[in-house]
Amino acid sequence: MTALLLVRRVPPGRLDLTRATAQQWNDGLARDATLQWWELVDPAADDAHPAAALAAVRNDDAVVRLAGLATPPGRRDRAVQVLMALVDALRATSARTLEAAPSADLLTILRDAGFRPGPDGREVVEL
């Protein structure tokens, strides 16, 4: 049976685990202390269990900017899943747009998660 995975903003007590997990999957992303982290987790797992995928954003009220994703190697499906869940979660906030600056390898993931071309070469989702 596959576990139900939900997205949530990383609670302060899990930030050290989150950064350690991100360091394994995306070291550069893990070093930025200014990011807001969201995690895809099994809600039945204990707090010592690492996330299934991570998304890091910069938030300025109306526009949320995707800083990066961290997933286990080869788990493109988890990257899409965390982005789709993040979009749903952000719809309950004051944010109106989620945007990303796509790299060549990220573009397909963004498109699969519902992003579309926006201004300045960015990919966007209207919330």
Rank of each mutant, 00 (worst) to 15 (best):
A3G: 12
A3I: 02
L5F: 08
V7C: 09
V7G: 01
R8W: 02
V10S: 04
P12H: 11
P12F: 10
G13F: 05
G13Q: 11
G13H: 14
R14A: 14
L15A: 07
D16L: 09
D16I: 02
R19Q: 07
A20F: 06
T21F: 05
A22C: 12
Q23N: 15
Q23G: 15
N26K: 15
N26L: 11
L29G: 06
A30C: 02
R31T: 12
A33Q: 11
L35F: 05
Q36M: 15
Q36E: 14
W37P: 02
W38H: 14
D42L: 07
A44V: 08
A45S: 14
A45W: 00
D47R: 05
P50G: 08
A51I: 09
A51L: 02
A52N: 09
L54Q: 06
A56F: 03
A56R: 00
A56T: 00
R58C: 05
R58L: 12
R58P: 02
D60H: 15
D60E: 15
D60I: 06
D61T: 13
A62H: 03
A62S: 11
V64H: 03
R65W: 04
R65Y: 05
A67F: 03
A67I: 01
G68N: 10
G68H: 09
G68F: 05
G68C: 13
A70S: 13
A70E: 02
T71E: 14
R75L: 15
R76E: 11
D77G: 14
A79Y: 06
A79F: 06
L83N: 01
A85L: 04
L86R: 04
L90R: 01
R91P: 04
R96V: 04
T97N: 01
T97V: 14
L98K: 05
L98P: 00
E99F: 02
A101Y: 01
S103V: 15
S103M: 15
A104Y: 14
L106F: 12
L106W: 12
I109A: 01
L110G: 01
R111A: 13
D112R: 10
G114K: 07
F115A: 08
P117Y: 11
P117R: 12
P117L: 03
G118S: 02
P119G: 03
P119A: 10
P119Q: 08
D120M: 07
D120L: 02
G121I: 09
R122N: 12
R122D: 03
E123D: 09
E123N: 08
E123T: 05
V124H: 00
